[in-house]
């Protein structure tokens, strides 16, 4: 286990270094001048040049790259060109919002998706299966910003159960009200993915000899389905959850914007539109780090679920 972790960590550091270099180059290749964005459309060429000097983006590229790398190694990711606040601080301020939303969406997705997938599989080619398949198809094809608006119209405007501005942590109840709709919005999409994967994994497992043997031995049907079959179907489900967790953070961009929640998604959109180089760099590193971490956790989870998997 320790050797596995060290090896994976080594790879992760290499990945991060490659990403840092790539990100540094990519954000600068993109056209658009941060100084122009900050100063607005009335600034003259002299004012823009002065602002570029003040931001340090007029220095030679190699000079900027080395200070960026040394800074990153020290944990100093620079200062946002737009707000003047340290990048790390900006990220730390909003990171918990994204983490809680992502985790809750995942829980909702799994809580709905796994039973629905199992239900569909055991009722293959019958009404429950059709319903689950249709619902998951709808979930996959529905753009998250449309479902977000629909949820807001129904639950916030018509029923008044939840606020439109979903960012209130003043009390546990306010927190619950704030997070439920955005988490549901993302969770339903995730549920659609999980339903489909669970269904197909379960269908495969249900054909296995040990299931037939268990039935022949008279093991109760729920025990066969939930204990024997589902446990063996979990590996592909965990894979999809792990993969989707990375996508989920990306998908949270629109959800955060529509529900007006702080988060990494909103931060990266702002940084992109304002050509905030240090912020973009910091964000890319964080995203890479999260994806690497999730992949690692997924690998570890395999070993817990399936004793045949060895971490080596």
């Amino acid at each position: 286990m320790a050797a596995f972790l060290i090896k994976r960590l080594g790879f992760s550091v290499l990945t991060l270094f490659a990403v840092l270099t790539l990100v540094f180059v990519v954000v600068r290749i993109a056209p658009g001048d941060p100084a122009q964005v900050i100063l607005g459309d009335q600034a003259d060429a002299a004012a823009i040049a002065a602002m570029r000097a003040r931001l340090g983006i007029d220095r030679p590229m190699i000079d900027q790259y080395t200070s960026f790398l040394f800074g990153a190694a020290r944990g100093d990711w620079g200062v946002s060109l737009v707000t003047g606040r340290p990048v790390i601080q900006e990220i730390i301020d909003v990171l918990p919002w994204t983490i809680e939303l992502t985790l809750l969406s995942m829980v909702i997705g799994a809580a709905i998706g796994i039973p629905a997938g199992v239900w569909a599989a055991v009722h293959r080619n019958r009404m429950p299966d059709y319903v689950a398949r249709l619902a998951s198809l709808l979930g996959l094809s529905f753009p998250p910003f449309v479902s977000a608006i629909l949820l807001l119209i129904v639950f916030s405007l018509m029923l008044r159960w939840f606020p439109v501005i979903s960012a209130n942590r003043s009390t546990p109840w306010a927190w619950f009200q704030s997070i439920m709709l955005p988490a549901l919005n993302l969770g339903l999409i995730m549920a659609a993915y999980i339903t489909r994967v669970t269904r197909s994994a379960m269908l495969e497992v249900m054909q296995e000899d040990y299931v037939r043997t268990a039935r022949a031995k008279g093991v109760p049907w729920p025990v066969i389905v939930w204990r024997h079959a589902l446990r063996n179907a979990l590996i592909p489900i965990i894979t999809i959850v792990g993969l989707y967790l990375g996508i989920l953070i990306g998908n949270s961009v629109l959800t955060e914007i529509v529900f007006n929640r702080p988060g990494l998604g909103k931060l990266i959109v702002g940084a992109l539109s304002q050509r905030d180089y240090p912020m973009l760099q910091g964000m890319m590193v964080i995203y890479t780090f999260i994806v690497v971490l999730v992949n690692m956790l997924t690998d570890i989870a395999y070993a817990f679920v399936d004793p045949r998997v060895k971490l080596s």
Partner: peptide, 19 residues
């Protein structure tokens, strides 16, 4: 002074009386 970049969300928040 709330930052609400989405036009739709701003309209909904106004209709709900939140702004």
């Amino acid at each position: 002074y709330r930052f609400i970049p989405s036009d739709a969300a701003r309209d909904l928040a106004f209709q709900a009386g939140e702004i």
